[in-house]
């Protein structure tokens, strides 16, 4: 249950080391934050879905965002990435103000997200999905797209980059298939790989492991760690505590829209506030329990309605 168990790579050590001296309390300052958010509030009707006083996310680390259903994790994700508008609040990404900025601009600023319900572009091939993820494509301008020599070189570059990533994610055999023909787990992989095409500073993964079979889970975890080791910051929402324990450098716990605890995985698991918030009366239930997953289905339904 110690942090060392989950951090084999040297870079992981540095991430964990950087956070070693940080006090495990909500809203604590980090040595090198990439995201700094203040007083972010989002209400739906009479309900307050998110009310975050202060949150910092450490650069170069894997931060997990956990909490029971309806804690506001996905809503916070939507707010930070410009997919939803807060009632109030400010946040900075890499020193840039990003509140009130559209989703497209947030992504271009280097903060790319995935979705809880995968959004594979079904009638595009896997390769096209990947190519779409790349930024700075001259061929995406209307007039330049008419003259192939203007964009052919960049197209070759991103195609090579895409193929490399597809090999790494073991999707290279599927590269010419429609994305709609992939299995649920493969779609999760594709979506993550696609996000990486943009070479983001920060990837935000919304339940990357939900609905993925155990065999793929292992490789997904590996991929997330590799991404971190290559210098990209990772922020992810997850229900499955086993996963969180194994790869997260830092855990942020939300309940009823608020951040109730922060700290390294081992410390957070023992925090009584977390146990209260997360488990209610069921103190003896394992945090990786299936009942949590079953409840996750309900939250998916909610999310479906919210995106409509």
């Amino acid at each position: 249950m110690s942090a060392e168990l989950s951090s084999p790579a040297p870079l992981a050590k540095t991430a964990a080391q950087a956070l070693a001296g940080v006090a495990p309390e909500p809203g604590v300052a980090k040595p090198d934050p990439i995201i700094v958010a203040d007083d972010v509030v989002r209400r739906f009707g009479g309900m307050t879905a998110v009310d975050v006083r202060h949150l910092e996310v450490q650069r170069g680390a894997i931060t997990a965002l956990i909490g029971p259903n309806g804690a506001g994790k996905t809503t916070l994700f939507n707010l930070l990435t410009g997919f939803d508008k807060p009632n109030s609040g400010t946040w900075e990404f890499d020193g840039r103000r990003l509140n009130g900025v559209s989703a497209g601009r947030v992504a271009r600023a280097g903060m790319v997200r995935t979705f809880q319900l995968t959004k594979a572009l079904s009638r595009l091939t896997v390769l096209q999905n990947m190519q779409l993820g790349a930024t700075k494509q001259p061929g995406e301008g209307f007039f330049t797209s008419l003259v192939k020599p203007l964009w052919a070189a960049r197209e070759r570059e991103i195609t090579a980059q895409a193929e490399e990533l597809l090999i790494r994610f073991k999707l290279d055999a599927k590269s010419e298939d429609f994305a709609g023909s992939l299995s649920g787990g493969q779609r999760k992989l594709l979506e993550m790989a696609r996000a990486l095409m943009a070479k983001p500073e920060l990837v935000m993964l919304d339940e990357p492991m939900a609905g993925v079979n155990p065999a793929l889970t292992q490789s997904l975890l590996g991929h997330i760690q590799t991404v971190r080791d290559e210098g990209t910051t990772v922020l992810f929402v997850e229900h499955d505590m086993q996963m969180v324990r194994r790869i997260a450098d830092w855990v942020v716990v939300m309940a009823e829209g608020k951040i109730v605890a922060e700290g390294p995985p081992s410390a957070v698991m023992e925090n009584p506030a977390v146990v209260d918030a997360y488990l209610g009366a069921h103190h003896d239930t394992d945090l990786g329990d299936e009942s949590v997953m079953a409840e996750g289905v309900l939250e998916q339904l909610e999310a479906e309605e919210a995106t409509e």
């Binding site: 990435t81 997919f83 559209s102 989703a103 497209g104 601009r105 992504a107 271009r108 790319v112 997200r113 995935t114 979705f115 959004k119 594979a120 572009l121 079904s122 009638r123 595009l124 096209q128 190519q131 779409l132 993820g133 930024t135 995406e140 979506e191 696609r194 996000a195 095409m197 943009a198 995106t307």
Partner: peptide, 18 residues
């Protein structure tokens, strides 16, 4: 390609910075 992406899922394309 971007247009076709929008046809499939607007939000996905938005999340990729378009």
């Amino acid at each position: 390609r971007v247009l076709k992406g929008i046809r499939e899922d607007e939000d996905a394309v938005r999340s990729l910075g378009k």
